[in-house]
Design a protein around this nucleic acid. Structure first.
Lengths: 329, 329
DNA sequence: CATCACTGCTGAATCGAATCAGCCGCATCA
DNA sequence: TGATGCGGCTGATTCGATTCAGCAGTGATG
């Protein structure tokens, strides 16, 4: 313990404490004494007891991360990776809990985290959406991850879906596409990804004097993507560029296109959103606008621990992950 | 704080403490007093300060979970979900850290967890394999998750890959397959999934007087699956049943089969391992022997917190997740 | 030469629980 | 009647740090 270090160095625990907390200069401790204490620390392999420290300081060098199911789902778990790494860089650890969407479990998790004096809480959702900050987090330092609360001015970290929409269309236009259809429509009212991507898509087309040629309505699953695209093709649907709202949808669309004898990218170009591993598994590999999950998670933790952060939403750019689904010119 | 509760109830903090720690009977505290204290607790909304408690008891109601990259990869993150839920059920929280495979980062994470007095550490790997327990965990209560240390008799939780191999082949045999090929071969010497699955596969075939007809060698990626299977088909390869070592490989095999005009399951049946979401995305949906990640994670935490656990490996059964890739008879 | 400021350090209290070693009063027993 | 036991509770210490208030010694200042 600290007392042993102090004894070994021949100083008081107070002095040792100041030195270990980087307050040596402030407290005018002589370099000689500092050296003695550091030597003692190294000698004894001293490691502070975090519980004791937390008891006094009410800080634990720990951040909470509550989510609905970001670990459970395939891709979004990158947010955890990013959060974990960023926390480590700032000498913190992540305490995580998954509610699976159950509000009561969520309440319990938050309560347990606060009991353990986490220095702040990241509240994350698997799907980009609007949320209401849980009661238990009111007054608690927190950052929203992949979601926003329109009623509160909270720090919030989300992907830049509008910019992503621009990028997706820009990729198609650069390949010469002029007849662009969109596949997928977000059915959940709170979800933000769909509408924002659509905003970007339309704006980028408008900048070239175009608009979308049409919308193939379906939700964001492989089977829906397949069926909706099949129906569209069966009805004589045609396009030279397809924007799919996510990679799974695109996979379904690929299946439908193949069944109708259409080749990607020779007959039409396809771009989608997510940049998930799936994009790299399809043939041809899918050009997809990447959700920067790890960055989102890391930024959320950094903002949480940045005392100077003054709230508001930060949108992280989405980059185009090149595949082979857009025709080269 | 506890002192307030005691004051409100008109008893000493000692008494209140005993009651809240379930030692009322042992300490012969009268029911009347217990009731008073409980009322005061409810009244004041008392929540114990965990740091203070930890300082005395050296327990934090927290478990560490260090992994290489189980969050980072798509499917295995289910282990986190399971661990989180099991921890909650036992009134614990999970402190997680991802090393990304970097031994130095792993060391740091473990050190930080121990400093924070986690009650134990789950050491998890993304890929089922043998490992050596990290130095920092020697003498620390720990459970291996999805890995085993052959040199130590540690509690370890892994999927039953041998049983999975049996199940995969049983499914094919039940569909009438007699000419069974295996696609995929584990190139990493420490990996255990491949060899064990192969053991089960051969044993189940042997039980029916058969053996595998051949092995299509490749590592476990979509592109390798595609290329290796394509080569095999080009060389005149034929089978009525294909066992793919994982779902990604199977996806590659699907692509190759389609290119060669072979239909699943009409021309041959396919089973694979993982039971990942991908299996449900393929057409036809893939019959796959599921890796029970959530169960594995949950069991690891339960064993970690079970003082009566005496070590040794527990293999969790792998169930067949039915798709449409095996011919019905 | 008294006052003052400054340097370099320390003693003691504090955070909020857990827990050991009793203590008081009353019934029982020889 | 005095010893003994037990039911029901409490005082004081402890866990290991942080931190406030303050105290010697020294040199400068008026």
């Amino acid at each position: 313990m600290l007392a042993d270090v102090a004894a070994e160095a021949g100083v008081s625990p107070t002095t040792a404490s100041y030195i270990l907390n980087g307050r040596a200069d402030e407290m005018r401790i002589s370099p000689a004494t500092v050296a003695k204490v550091r030597a003692a620390v190294a000698d004894l392999g001293y490691r502070p007891n975090r519980s004791a420290r937390s008891l006094r300081t009410r800080r634990t060098a720990t951040v909470g991360l509550v989510s609905d199911r970001i670990a459970g789902e395939q891709h979004g778990s990158g947010m955890l990776t990013g959060a974990s790494l960023a926390a480590r860089e700032l000498d913190h650890l992540v305490v995580m809990g998954e509610s699976g969407g159950d509000p009561e479990l969520e309440r319990l998790l938050i309560e347990e985290m606060l009991e353990r004096d986490v220095d702040g809480v990241v509240y994350a959702t698997h799907t980009a959406r609007t949320v209401r900050l849980p009661q238990g987090l009111r007054g608690v330092r927190s950052v929203l991850l992949n979601c926003e609360d329109p009623d509160e001015r909270l720090p919030s970290v989300v992907p830049d879906d509008v910019g992503g929409g621009h990028a997706a269309v820009a990729t198609l236009l650069a390949a010469g596409a002029r007849d662009v259809w969109v596949v997928g429509e977000d059915p959940v009212p709170e979800a933000t990804a769909g509408p924002r991507r659509m905003t970007g898509i339309r704006a980028e087309l408008a900048a070239h004097g175009l608009d979308i040629s049409g919308l193939v309505r379906c939700d964001w699953s492989v089977t829906e993507g397949f069926e909706a695209t099949s129906r569209w093709l069966a009805d004589g649907g045609r396009a030279d560029g397809l924007v799919c709202m996510n990679d799974r949808l695109a996979m379904g669309a690929y299946q439908a296109l193949a069944e109708h004898g259409l080749r990607v990218p020779e007959d039409l170009s396809v771009v989608s959103f997510d940049g998930s591993p799936l994009a790299g598994w399809l043939r041809p590999q899918l050009t997809s606008v990447e959700l920067p999950f790890a960055e989102l998670g890391a930024l959320a933790v950094r903002r949480l621990l940045d005392a100077g952060d003054h709230g508001g939403t930060v949108s992280v750019p989405m980059r185009v992950q090149q595949g082979g689904s857009v025709r080269r010119r």
